[in-house]
């Protein structure tokens, strides 16, 4: 290439493009959430709230005052956390075996994981609904936690296995030689080394559970278990005949906040997890 100034400009432009790409729609939904509901009804085209159509925090207050929405947040947090926890525990066991042990059926597990990662989720909705209503799991937390676990396991197993392969396991023995008990060796040496991988897998699993929509709308019918994405799609304002676009936007921003916080805090770990867990040459 040689032409370094040109190249620099190109990269700077590219970087600006990436930032616009990623942040513009987010800025838009935030801007929309500040349009007043009245101005939405009357039509308020444009990126920013029109003059006199600025709602302040009204939409956020109204969204938060919505009992169903608060329940949905509670459901989503609870269900996603439990699913994440269980999924990571089960995946850790499996990933350890895959990374460290030779056993028959390893290929079967990896193939199953691959198959499930590609599985068309909607095709399960019918039979699962039928099963859940028969065994009483319909519209309950476990009714969502179980499918979330199954569908996050492949990603969790891959991410963890990739991390575990990089752990210098011989250090465990070295510690034992130095007089540590095997539990101490495991706790002091292996756990700190494995922890980042487990943590990364947990974040990715949580994202999946938080994002799910198909199970969320088909396997629930009340706020007993309905998670945020489903709740947003059924969002009801004070005026039932008017879909409250700006109120919905406020709800959407609230639902996105946890994700943004996690991304800001753990950017490095997520990138490492995504790239190691999903593609290896």
């Amino acid at each position: 290439m040689g032409n370094t100034p040109l190249r620099k400009v190109g990269i700077a432009l590219g970087a600006a493009l990436i930032l616009i790409w990623c942040l513009l729609p987010v800025a838009w939904i935030i801007s929309l959430s500040f349009k007043s509901q009245e101005s939405i009804t009357n039509g308020s085209p444009g990126f920013f709230p029109s003059e006199g159509g600025f709602a302040g925090w009204d939409n956020y207050v109204a969204a938060w005052d919505n009992e169903q929405f608060r329940r949905a947040i509670f459901n989503s947090i609870g269900i996603s956390l439990i699913a994440t926890l269980l999924s990571v525990i089960v995946a850790t066991l499996a990933a350890y075996a895959i990374a460290r042990l030779e056993f028959r059926g390893k290929k079967l597990v990896l193939s199953t994981a691959l198959a499930i990662a590609m599985f068309p989720v909607v095709s399960l909705v019918g039979p699962l609904f039928d099963m859940w209503r028969a065994i009483g799991l319909y519209d309950t937390w476990p009714g969502l936690i179980i499918p979330y676990m199954s569908f996050t396991l492949p990603l969790a197993i891959w991410t963890l296995a990739a991390f575990f392969r990089e752990i210098p396991w011989e250090m465990e023995q070295a510690a034992q030689v130095d007089g540590a008990t095997s539990w101490q060796a495991f706790r002091k040496v292996i756990v700190p080394l494995a922890a980042p991988g487990v943590f990364t897998a947990a974040i990715l699993t949580f994202f999946f559970a938080w994002n799910d929509f198909v199970f969320g709308i088909s396997l629930t019918s009340t706020e007993a278990a309905r998670p945020i994405p489903a709740s947003l799609s059924f969002f009801v304002g004070s005026d039932p005949f008017n879909r409250p676009a700006s109120l919905l936007a406020a709800g959407a921003v609230i639902a996105t906040l946890p994700i943004i916080v996690i991304v800001l805090a753990f950017q490095r770990k997520i990138v490492a997890g995504l790239t190691s867990g999903a593609v290896k040459g």
């Binding site: 609904f129 859940w132 209503r133 319909y138 519209d139 019918s221 009340t222």
Partner: peptide, 9 residues
């Protein structure tokens, strides 16, 4: 929503 609940008895 209602029909799903009722179908589940």
């Amino acid at each position: 929503q209602l029909a799903r609940r009722l179908a589940a008895n």
